[in-house]
Design a protein around this nucleic acid. Structure first.
Lengths: 204, 204
DNA sequence: ATATGACGGTGACACCGGTCACTGCTCCGC
DNA sequence: GCGGAGCAGTGACCGGTGTCACCGTCATAT
């Protein structure tokens, strides 16, 4: 996604000002963007790539949602707004190019351009919905379905079908143990929903 | 909480305008405010009482969080903003007086008074954090702790200690079965953390 | 007084998922 | 080639919790 397109919903004047003060940065895959407990100085807007957001709890973690191109990590916005430390962690899942907005400017822009706020309200919205869906899955679905949904979402977001990922990775994202993933993967394979190759998994 | 105090963080001019267009309403306990799938015309700001917000999933439900005095149900805001149906349900837990803001005015106010947006950002924040905590509890804690935390929060929010509530109610809120609550309550009682009377529960 | 309905208590049971212990495989670096 | 690291597969086990069946108690309505 190009920069101009990402800002197309905003007044031209504001878009120009953003381009002036924000910087575009290319971030390699697997880079930590935000650690829980950390304070924040920039708000990223993803242009290309994929960021994943997780919550950590007593050495276990859980994938909360992904941030796709055109979206922003509002947790950083939130953290800056109330000057609170972040409750979540974020890292790049793919190589990612992002527009980095300095927090100080962001709040100023919000005051001067009402449309700028709408953008963040929409983001809050999306994240809230994501969390709600995560809750539903965690509480009401069993591993079979959670795992399958996870794989589907992953192929959909990355655009790759045999995806390269280890069982351990999946277990981390779903907040469970590796053995469990092994077991359930076998079951899914048996049901003809997935196929496993060395080093990768294909959805059918 | 009085109306003027609730609006004290806003510019006087805006507060006056709000008082002009919004209406204060007293709602009896147990009234449905918002049903999942419904569209919204007013945004409530709680002045007195307590609203609870739940999500429904295949005839089971789960308490997401409470809305205390001074807070607002941003899900209604969200629903109005994108004209989407609500994904959650809300009802009064206690008799509640609320300030009802007509959605059309709200967006206009957001445009004219930047400070008004901040108020909603803070609310979004609070709800996001609530959801995150709910996720932690559901995924990482067992029933013992979930139930105890639930009771603690309830006494804290209502200000009553022997609280009047049925096992079935609790089970609904925690998204589990009545028998489970019976069982775990016995355990908590045995551990000396709670006491059960006919019709009510006391925390120790 | 009796019937009805809501509530709580309880035992038996099954299932899911977390844990442990161990095996075998592949890919490296030395 | 050898050893170590990381990964997947597996069987055994167990604890938590959802479910079923059933009973006793209490309050209320008829």
């Amino acid at each position: 996604m190009e920069l101009t397109h990402a800002l197309s919903s905003l007044p031209v004047e504001l878009a120009e000002e953003i381009k002036e003060y924000a910087s575009v940065k290319k971030i390699p895959a697997g880079t930590g963007i935000l650690r829980a407990g950390q304070y924040v100085k920039v708000i990223p807007l993803v242009l290309e790539g994929l960021i994943k957001v997780v919550t950590v709890y007593e050495d276990k973690e859980l994938l909360l949602y992904y941030i796709a191109p055109g979206e922003s990590c509002i947790m950083t916005f939130m953290a800056g707004l109330q000057n609170e430390p972040s409750k979540i962690s974020a890292m790049t899942e793919e190589e990612t190019t992002a527009l980095l907005l300095p927090t100080t400017r962001v709040y100023e822009w919000g005051n001067r351009y009402p449309a700028f706020n709408t953008l963040f309200f929409i983001q809050y919205n999306a994240r809230y919905s994501d969390l709600l869906e995560t809750i539903h899955q965690v509480l009401f679905e069993n591993m079979d379905k959670r795992l399958f949904e996870y794989l589907k979402k992953k192929t959909h977001l990355t655009g790759r079908n045999p995806i390269k990922i280890s069982h351990r990775q999946i277990a981390n994202d779903l907040g469970t143990a590796r053995e469990v993933i092994s077991r359930v993967m076998k079951k899914l394979e048996h049901e003809g929903k997935v196929r496993q190759y060395t080093n990768s998994i294909e959805i059918i």
